[in-house]
Design a protein around this nucleic acid. Sequence first.
DNA 1: TCAGTTCCATAACTATTACTTATAGCCGGA
DNA 2: TCCGGCTATAAGTAATAGTTATGGAACTGA
Lengths: 312, 312
Amino acid sequence: MELRQLRYFLAVVNAQNFTRASEAVHVSQPSLSVQIGALEDELGTRLFDRLGKKVVLTQAGEVLRDHAERALRELEQAAQAVQELHGASRGRLIVGTISTVNSYLIPPLVSRFKQRFPAIHLQVHAQPSADIVSGLLANRLDVGICLLPVPTDRLTVVPLFEERLVLVAPPKSERRMRLRMQDLVGLPLVLMPADYCLRKMIEEECAEAGIQPEVVLEMTSPEGILQAVAGGAGFTILPELYVRLRLPGKDLQVIDLYGPTPRHSVGLAFLTNRYQNLAAKEFGNLCLSTMATLRTTFKGSNGKKAVADISV
Amino acid sequence: MELRQLRYFLAVVNAQNFTRASEAVHVSQPSLSVQIGALEDELGTRLFDRLGKKVVLTQAGEVLRDHAERALRELEQAAQAVQELHGASRGRLIVGTISTVNSYLIPPLVSRFKQRFPAIHLQVHAQPSADIVSGLLANRLDVGICLLPVPTDRLTVVPLFEERLVLVAPPKSERRMRLRMQDLVGLPLVLMPADYCLRKMIEEECAEAGIQPEVVLEMTSPEGILQAVAGGAGFTILPELYVRLRLPGKDLQVIDLYGPTPRHSVGLAFLTNRYQNLAAKEFGNLCLSTMATLRTTFKGSNGKKAVADISV
DNA sequence: TCAGTTCCATAACTATTACTTATAGCCGGA
DNA sequence: TCCGGCTATAAGTAATAGTTATGGAACTGA
């Protein structure tokens, strides 16, 4: 049984006439006759009674008609559903992001994304960069925003921007604008636990500056850390954009670090061989444009403008 | 989109591997690859992510899988339903019979038929022979039992048996076993109305015998006629088998007619070009065997044994 | 890191089959 | 009884699904 035969069959059902049916499906009449005949042979029954003037369905034909119509409708719907998916009018996108980026980039990004793709079911998981990589490799995530470089060649990476870290000081502390990394010595710090990538990065930067940070409090949520700092628990180091977004209404000061300025590259990653639909492709562009908007809002920040063209 | 492609597609879905899928559907791996590729091209999307070790569905693939499975299941069911119809495990059979035959042959016939084809929906319409012919021609009836000869060549006719008519007398009348047709003169008769074929036949026979029947009462139902005769309203002429079946419990006598004996041929008719399923074909054979049973029950009856082989 | 293995895609060619035109045969209507 | 309309069959052609051979990418294990 082939779809062609079913299409011809239904054409004959509608036309009640082989010749006109053959015109409807744009083949010659013999061709259609042969195909109907093959279908009848396969099913072991006549499907039509050839009554000279008209051609009418046998009982078997009636049975087949109902089923065939349903089957063809099913496949039409399939094609349409796949098209919509491709045009991203519906579907699913599972994103993994590192928690710092999650805190400032994702909220406006999600709102833009939902505006552009209202019917896409978007899922955002904030998780450590390593988990994002493994999630992508295990095909649990569609795309990921993670720290660069990514330690595998099975992922395609698109650099997005650099994240710069700043020192956040409690209000009463001395009002300096800049601080050398090595001057962090002895400063009481509120940081995330040791398994967080941000913490690891800070420790690496400190090591490079030849010092060891003095951590007086560990908290997982950046929001909690900021509150702790505002409460006088100590200083902290967080991504600049995140801090500047939260600054209004809080009595905190931002102090640039230098010598060197701690920073890391953030990129979009996805499985190289994976097919990405429109929504997934656009997600990367939205990352860049949203980031640009955030930057202009806080002109003090810098970071190289990344060029991204996400395609498979 | 072709069913072949969908079958291959589902094979890959199950095997998660092109090579093994190709073995499952008994084609070479490149052939399968090309077909999947064609499907992907047609839908404008990748259906699988080729991840080296495994092959996993994209979202589009997942969508297609669901629809394709439903469509194929639908067609499997179609094939099965058609098979069952062919084997007559289910279906429909609409029969038209002349009323006299309906009265004695149909009851035992229906019970046998139902035993043989329990799931067939059987519909029996008792109607004039002419209506049966037109019903067959208009494709309203599947088969018909009607008087021979049939006045059209578009029907295939299988002679079944001869129906012989006998005179039915009220109990008190003289006890004779046989009566010449011409001796019917002056006998008060209870017959069906003039548009019934049985009545027409009787009138023809009478005309042939050179007499005119004296009808004192007209009734449509044979059962009512018998009661009227038993009640002394007069005599009647009815098919022999019908009368003998009803005789027990009724105080009536049967008198053979001769010179000539009024009789008519009954046959099975169906549209020559129409496809007949097993149930329809068997219906004719059941007619014959049921008739034979009836005859042995009332050995006095005669009638040529008809040879029937009903096929299309 | 490098050979060995597995797996999918592509190319070139063959076999199959669906299509075409031409024509025969049947049926129904004038 | 002939004519017009219809379907089935036949013969030949075009389209396509199939094959084997091979290339390249990716994982595996020494």
